[in-house]
Simulated scan of single mutants.
Amino acid sequence: MTQAQAVTETRSVIVEREIPHPPAKIWRALTQPHLIAEWLMKNDFQPVVGRSFKLSADWGSVDCEVKTVEAEKTLSYTWAAYGLESVVTWTLTPTGTGTRLRMEQEGFRTDQEQAYQGAKHGWQQFFAQLEQVLVRAD
């Protein structure tokens, strides 16, 4: 394998959950800044393709740009922090009892093991917090 190949090889973190809420309710939690702040981070998000936004936490911030907005179906944005250049894609699929919510964060290089492991752990926590927000939100 050449060095160029090693650099371009990337991994993804995928979390998929069946959530007992309709897509419209989950979509609001993914796209409304005050709700995003409750489960993810403080932000200035707007669901507008091409719009840059920032996610902020006590450990630092993430620079993002909206890539895809398909209401109640798909949302994706870039996620750049501490040398990580990745894309987060949310997919909502209606089911008989609610919604299958899938999140994929792609773009972890093989030399970014700490970021990869951190994301694997972090997204589990974010999902748990998201589910709490959905229980409370109307």
Rank of each mutant, 00 (worst) to 15 (best):
R17K: 14
F45V: 09
G122W: 06
Q3N: 12
A128W: 10
L130Q: 04
W90D: 01
D63G: 08
G98A: 05
Y82M: 14
V49S: 10
L30T: 00
P33H: 04
K67D: 09
L55A: 08
R11Q: 13
R51P: 06
E104G: 00
L134Y: 09
N43H: 08
K42N: 12
M41H: 09
A81V: 11
E18C: 07
D111P: 00
W123V: 02
P47N: 07
Q32R: 15
L75E: 03
Q132R: 15
V87I: 12
L55C: 06
D111G: 00
H34A: 10
K25W: 04
T8Q: 14
T89Q: 09
H21F: 15
T110E: 12
I36T: 05
T95G: 02
G98P: 00
K25L: 11
Q46P: 02
E9D: 11
S12L: 04
W59N: 06
A24N: 12
Q112R: 01
W79Q: 08
Y116G: 01
V69N: 04
T97P: 08
L30W: 09
Q129R: 15
T93I: 10
F126I: 10
L134Q: 08
T93F: 07
T68Q: 07
T2V: 09
E18Y: 01
P23L: 03
E18K: 13
P22F: 01
T78W: 11
G98M: 13
P33K: 05
S86A: 13
A81L: 12
E18D: 14
P94E: 08
L75P: 07
W90N: 04
E38G: 06
A6P: 00
Q124P: 08
M1K: 08
S86E: 03
A137E: 12
L30P: 00
S56G: 11
E9P: 04
G118K: 05
E113F: 07
T93Q: 11
M1G: 14
R100W: 03
G83H: 09
Q129V: 03
A57S: 14
Y116E: 06
E72H: 10
E113V: 08
I19H: 01
K42Q: 15
A24L: 05
H34C: 04
K67N: 11
V7R: 12
A115M: 08
G118F: 07
C64G: 09
I36E: 00
D138L: 13
V7F: 13
F53D: 05
W123R: 03
S86Y: 02
K120L: 14
T68K: 09
I19Q: 03
H34N: 14
Q117I: 11
A37W: 12
F126V: 10
W39N: 11
M103L: 15
E70A: 13
L55N: 04
V7G: 06
P22S: 03
Q125N: 14
T91A: 10
L92D: 00
L101D: 02
V48S: 10
F108C: 02
E70N: 11
